[in-house]
């Protein structure tokens, strides 16, 4: 097979890209900018500025950032510990962190709901050792907790991968040139894992920003995120145009994240994927 013939093998995928990736996105644009009669309008876009939407967007951003930062703070030390274990079989690590995903995530979130319940396991334990029970359920904190739980593996794996790639020579060279552990951490390890950090941040921030199931389950309907607003406008209100214009806003957020990631990901093909 010469090169040209080999390229043709991507043909079916090209059809798929156009039909099921690009065309659907154009549909969102269409619904966001055209009304039922097919005439152009900016009306739906202006709905974005309504108090409910703005509140939902700000809350989504806040919770998304909080979840991302917590994930990063939890994942980075863990990645370092895992890396120090010097496990030869790196796929084992991937395996361990992917395994929970084989249990349906709604059920896992439900399990947390049972654990965090007013009379749940956590509070039973807390009260038995004489501490105040925590009423975290149905608060934004519970939603952040759920997001951290659900997306933590997406932060751990890219950071671990980029850390495993750092050659021992760099560390030794820095040591040799007089750097102590702290300097090595800030000047060598963090910069060299930056692409992993960025991938992790994007892979946690985007789904956290746009989730609606977690907030529905752990927020008890009291925490309204942009995802919930969109879901309602499609599944309950039949306000497809308004929903589409909000989706467009989400897409822009995502595109910005993608661009940032591309700038930092010099290898081009993504530490994004495990």
């Amino acid at each position: 097979m010469n090169k040209l013939k080999r390229q043709l093998l991507a043909g079916p995928y090209l059809v798929w890209i156009i039909g099921f990736i690009i065309l659907p996105l154009l549909m969102i644009l269409y619904y966001a900018f055209f009304d039922e009669n097919g005439s152009f309008t900016l009306e739906y876009l202006s709905h974005i500025a309504s108090p409910i939407n703005v509140h939902a967007m700000v809350l989504s951003l806040e919770l998304g950032v909080a979840a991302t930062v917590i994930c990063l703070l939890l994942a980075y030390p863990l990645a370092m510990i895992l890396n120090n274990l010097k496990i030869k079989n790196q796929s084992l690590i991937v395996f361990i962190f992917m395994l929970p995903m084989w249990m349906n995530f709604l059920l896992r979130i439900l399990a947390w709901k049972l654990l965090l319940n007013k009379n749940g396991v956590l509070n039973t334990v807390l009260m038995s050792i004489g501490l105040e029970p925590v009423m975290i359920l149905n608060t934004p904190a519970a939603v952040v907790f759920g997001m951290v739980y659900e997306y933590l593996p997406f932060m751990i794996l890219p950071i671990y991968n980029s850390m495993a790639r750092i050659k021992k020579d760099y560390i030794e060279a820095a040591h040799d040139l007089g750097a102590n552990e702290i300097t090595i951490f800030f000047k060598i390890i963090i910069p060299l894992t930056l692409s992993g950090i960025i991938s992790g941040v994007v892979m946690v921030f985007v789904p956290a920003l746009t989730s609606f199931a977690v907030s529905e389950l752990l927020g008890g309907g009291k925490v309204l995120l942009i995802g919930n607003v969109i879901e309602e406008s499609f599944m309950q209100g039949m306000q497809w145009n308004a929903g589409s214009s909000l989706s467009l806003v989400l897409m822009i957020f995502v595109m910005v994240s993608m661009t940032i990631m591309n700038i930092f990901d010099k290898d081009g093909e993504g530490t994004a994927v495990w």
Partner: peptide, 21 residues
């Protein structure tokens, strides 16, 4: 004495220049 406190420097086999600088 740890490496960073020794008054000698090493040139490594495989360069080990920091790629991000």
């Amino acid at each position: 004495l740890p490496a960073n406190e020794r008054k000698l420097n090493t040139v490594f086999q495989k360069y080990s220049l920091f790629p991000h600088m």
